[in-house]
Structures are given as structure tokens and as C-alpha cells.
Design a protein around this nucleic acid. Sequence first.
DNA 1: TCTCCGAAAGTTGTATAACAGATATGCGTT
DNA 2: AACGCATATCTGTTATACAACTTTCGGAGA
Lengths: 225, 225
Amino acid sequence: MHEERLADRAYAGIVELINTDDLQIGDRLPSETRLAEMFGMSRTVVREALVRLASDGFTEARRGAGSFVKRRPSERLGSHLPMQNLAATMGSYEVRLVLEAEAARLAAQRRSAEQMLVIERAMDSLRTALQASGPAHVEDMELHRAIFEATANPIFVSSFDHMHDEIDRILRAGVDISRSRPPAAINAMIEEHELVVDAIRAQDGDAAALAMRWHLWQGRKRLMP
Amino acid sequence: MHEERLADRAYAGIVELINTDDLQIGDRLPSETRLAEMFGMSRTVVREALVRLASDGFTEARRGAGSFVKRRPSERLGSHLPMQNLAATMGSYEVRLVLEAEAARLAAQRRSAEQMLVIERAMDSLRTALQASGPAHVEDMELHRAIFEATANPIFVSSFDHMHDEIDRILRAGVDISRSRPPAAINAMIEEHELVVDAIRAQDGDAAALAMRWHLWQGRKRLMP
DNA sequence: TCTCCGAAAGTTGTATAACAGATATGCGTT
DNA sequence: AACGCATATCTGTTATACAACTTTCGGAGA
């Protein structure tokens, strides 16, 4: 089961506090001790939540003074936005189509020899994993991430990580994606990936973008025909 | 000055540990007690660092088992990767160009009447802020975010938030972006935004995407002519 | 010998108490 | 009213203890 830690409740509680009490940027929120007794938990746990809030850029702790609102967490995508799984999956393909196609193009244009090697290795792993009819989710992700890294743009890479986390979170709540596939689909998946890798090897940006679009489109059709 | 907390040293120490000891994804790192005596600090502080590492997606704590490497921090954009600010800014424009153009297209195609109203209001705020020659960074961000929200795709919205965080983090380390602007640039910025909003109002996806590309391109030229 | 079960050891999660170091508050003096 | 200082408040850090959970390992039983 999906155990919930106390710090999660504290985190949500503080976010709610900021919103309902309408704390503005710069406002001080209650002391750790006060929050602890408000939520009925120890100061240790409240501190853990505050550390994460600060890490997320929402609050800032000033020693001896208190914790202050740095950015309001208003309507960010969170657990309170329950989407249908199907719509969410569709939505994820929209974002992937945009980001991954352009990443493939940049990767083709800029890849170094070392990065090409990493991509080839990831492709090999994916091929063997698919041919073994086992779960290939990790290998697939590694290949796509290698392509993002070949863009030589750290923001692209971090965007991939973020997108991947979000999609994972949605899919994990829904149907298992690593179900059994017919052999025809396996060969198709290998071929689609190879088209992308070939284009990157040939440093043909347009072809890489096109192949990636094709691959994602086929994947979407495979999931919901 | 910039007081250093012990947890910062612990955070850096663990990152270094992962890199130098070459811990791979899935590997377990030393227990909190062990790390505490390694770094010569209390377990509480080590826990604080681990919470932040988990929040950043580098590690994952499994109760009763230990903390495990989830993604290696080496290749991620971070404090230990001092990029030239110029290159980073260029990189951010690449990502924005891709994401925002497509977001504008989807927003134009799908916007509801309510969402259009939010966009109009954001546009008004931005216009007055720019005409007052004050800092308009917040208003600009609000408008762009409203456009992402009009896509009706939560993953697009969360990608925007993430991208914005990353870019902010880079720009904050560099030159202040809200410097004084010549009046001609102010009018140009207003006009560019209005072109985007007009296209969304007219529900013309291609025009919206094009206008957004144009706006971002002009912005890039304004920053580094 | 092999398998299975359960105790023990190890690890994270939480609570409590205490103190150090920094900051804000408010009172009293001038 | 303005200034200075004592005092209260708050975060940062340490230490200890226990609960909840996971892994390990050795022994009992087949």
C-alpha cells in the first residue's frame, strides 16, 4: 500500500495554511513548535516538512526569526487535481511529442562521439530486453534520456526528468504499462527506436525529429487503438 | 553573509559520496547513523540532507531498508555544474521556444471562455506594469502561466512550473533581468504579447504558436543582441 | 541436503528534551 | 522621541529512546 508519512501531512497542512489564511509573500508562518502542536505531531516532523517546502522554493527559514513565505504554492499541479487516467495519458503524449521531437533534433545536430556511444549502448540494451519479451521500461527510459543528454542542454535534461516523474506518477496510479505485447509490436518498437538512433548517428536533425514523432505516435496507438 | 548550515555540507558530502564511490542507480547508501559519524554531525542533520536529496529526486528512502540512489546527481544541472550564464540562458530559450509555442497553439485551440478571461486580465496587468516602467517579471510570468493553464493539460502546466524554476535558478545566480528598458522595447514587448493573446482569442493555433516563437526570439535578441 | 520459519540485527520514522546562536520585542532611561 | 539593553522567541543542532518495517541468518523439520 502507499504508506503516508507524517511529514507529508505536515507539508500539505502548511500549504493549506498559506492558502486559507491567505499568507502573502514575505509573511511569517507560525513557529515550528506552534505548527507541531497545531498538527498534533512532533517538531521533528514539522521541520522535515519545512525543509522540503524550502527546497521547493515556497518558504525560507531565517535563523532566530522564523520561516517566511517566499512563493505562494497556489494552484500548482498536485494531488487535488484528479484527472481521468486516459486523459492524463493523452496529455502526457502531447508533452512528450513536443519535447522529445525537438530533443531528437538537437541531439542529432550536436551529439559528441561519446554521447553517440551511450545512445548505441542504450539501444542495444533496449533491443535485447524487448527481444527477451521481458519488461523494457527501464531500458526505454534510459535510451530516451540519453538522447536528451546529447542535446548538451541541461535544462532539456532536467525537463525530461521532470516530465518522466509526472508521467510515472500518473501511470503508476492506473493500468500497468508493461503488459505482454504481441511479437509484431516488439519488432515495430525496435524498428522505431532504430530509426531515431540512425538519424542521430547521421546527424540529420529533421529526420530525427520526424522519427521520434512517428515513434511516439505509434506508441500512443499501441496503448489506445 | 551567506551562513552555511550543516545540512548543506551533509548534502554536498552525500552527493560527493555517490560520485566518488561510484554508487549506481539502485545502490544503497550508508545508513543515517553511519553517515552521521562519517561527517561528524548528528543524525538529525543527515536526515535533513537526505530529505532534500529525496525531494530533488536523487535518492529514495525505504523505511526499514535504507536510502537508495534513484538518479545520479552528476549529470543533472546543479550548483556543482558551473555553466556560463550566457550558455545557460541560451539553453533556456531553446526549451521555452519548444514548450511555449506548442502551449500557445493548444491554448488557442482549447481555451474556455473563463480561461480567456484570465489571460486577458493577466495581459492587462502586464501592460500597466510595463507602461509604469517598473519590474514586470511577475506579471510576465503570470501571463505565460495562464496560457499554459489554458491548454487544459496539467502536465504542460507542471512542465512550465519546472522550467520556470530552473530558469529562475540560473538567472538568479547571474545578472538581474529586471534592468531598465528603453521605451521602444517596452512597446515592443507589449505588442508581442498582444499578438499572442489575439491569436488565442481568435482560436488560431498556428498564429498563436508563430506569435509566441516571434516573441521569445525577440526577447532573446533583447537580452543578448 | 534442502526448505521454511522465526528470531535477531539493522534501518528509517517519530517523539522528547535540551541547549546554542541569532533575532525580535518591549521596557526603561535619557 | 530616540536609544540601549535585557528578555523572550525562534531556528539550528545534539542526544536519546522507541516504534515500525526489512533483511539476514541460523536452526528446526522434511
